[in-house]
């Protein structure tokens, strides 16, 4: 923050310091971001290799140990059906990671395209895009999601598409409002007068300038998608048995929270670690790329 204020008084150095190196340095210096990155790394490793920590398969049922506390035999205990909680968190986390990342990929892409093109082209395209955004915001998307996922059952791929379909609007609005300010920039005008085609201006001059916003949107989108999935699964609409996600595990654990707290605590902890890591990374990226902006919205 202080950096930008100082630049009012001293000229930036005419050094050949590449942007990317500067960004990486700032990011690496951000303690929160590094913690977030390490957390994410740990979770990814856990989700891929965590199965090795336990001899049990996630769908195995150990009838000798029903609703057992964490012990040597089951490091995180077992659930009512004798399922190994550790094995299930591994699968559940993997499911949540996949859902979060793929949904956010799609929403970020859609929001960037819709937002940037709407802002740059203006006119009826812009009005149409904004109307669509507002319309989808007003439709209680959670309700439609519940409808869809209730109908199709536990198919998580459909869930991914449904979440993506209703998850891009707020981000798109952010991209749109930032692009409208870019639209007025001199270099955009200059490109127009040089005869650069419109679509190329968007791809070459507008989207690259939004990269920090897009990265932030992406990490926050992961969080939002995971939380939405959790909520749906908790209510019984999202991922359904026999499939397992952190959300469905929470639903199972919630009913017995006072008697078998480990059923709830472990998935909750993993969920929290995951969303936290994404937020910390988002903050780090934002600080590194764009020390001035707060507009680069959180919501």
């Amino acid at each position: 923050m202080a950096e930008t204020r100082v630049s009012k008084y001293i000229e930036p150095p005419h050094l050949r310091l590449s942007r990317n190196r500067l960004y990486r340095r700032r990011f690496a210096r951000n303690r929160g971001a590094m913690i977030g990155l390490m957390l994410l790394g740990f979770l990814v490793i856990y989700a891929t290799l965590g199965g090795l920590l336990t001899p049990w398969h996630w769908s195995d049922q150990d009838f000798l140990a029903l609703t057992e506390r964490p012990s040597g035999r089951h490091l995180m205990g077992t659930n009512q059906g004798g399922g190994d909680v550790l094995a299930q968190t591994v699968v559940g986390l993997r499911r949540s990671l996949m859902i979060g990342l793929s949904v956010s990929c799609m929403t970020t892409l859609i929001s960037a395209m819709v937002g940037a093109f709407a802002a740059y082209f203006g006119g009826w395209i812009e009005r149409l895009a904004l109307a669509l955004i507002h319309f989808l915001l007003i439709v209680p998307s959670f309700l439609v999601l519940a409808l869809v996922s209730n109908r199709v059952g536990g198919d998580w791929l459909v869930l991914v598409f449904a979440l993506a379909l209703f998850g891009w609007m707020i981000a798109a609005r952010g991209v749109w409002s930032m692009s409208t300010s870019l639209r007025e920039r001199d270099y955009i005008l200059a490109a127009e007068f040089m005869g650069v085609p419109k679509w190329r201006i968007v791809l070459r001059h507008i989207l690259p300038h939004l990269s920090s916003l897009l990265v932030v949107n992406f990490s926050l989108g992961v969080t939002a998608a995971v939380l939405a999935e959790t909520s749906l699964s908790f209510l019984g609409f999202g991922v359904k048995p026999p499939d397992v996600s952190l959300g469905s595990m929470l639903a199972d654990g919630a009913g017995v929270i006072s008697s078998a707290s480990w059923l709830f605590a472990f998935p909750a902890a993993f969920l929290l670690l995951f969303t936290m890591s994404m937020t910390l990374i988002a903050d780090g990226v934002r600080d590194a790329l764009d020390p001035v902006s707060a507009e680069a919205s959180r919501r």
Binding site: R19, R185, D186, Y187, L189, A190, F193, H205, P208, H209
Partner: peptide, 16 residues
């Protein structure tokens, strides 16, 4: 017909 703008810093895309 080509154009030169007032503030070169604003007229040149900083990312290129």
């Amino acid at each position: 017909v080509q154009l030169v703008m007032q503030d070169p810093q604003a007229a040149l895309d900083p990312r290129l």
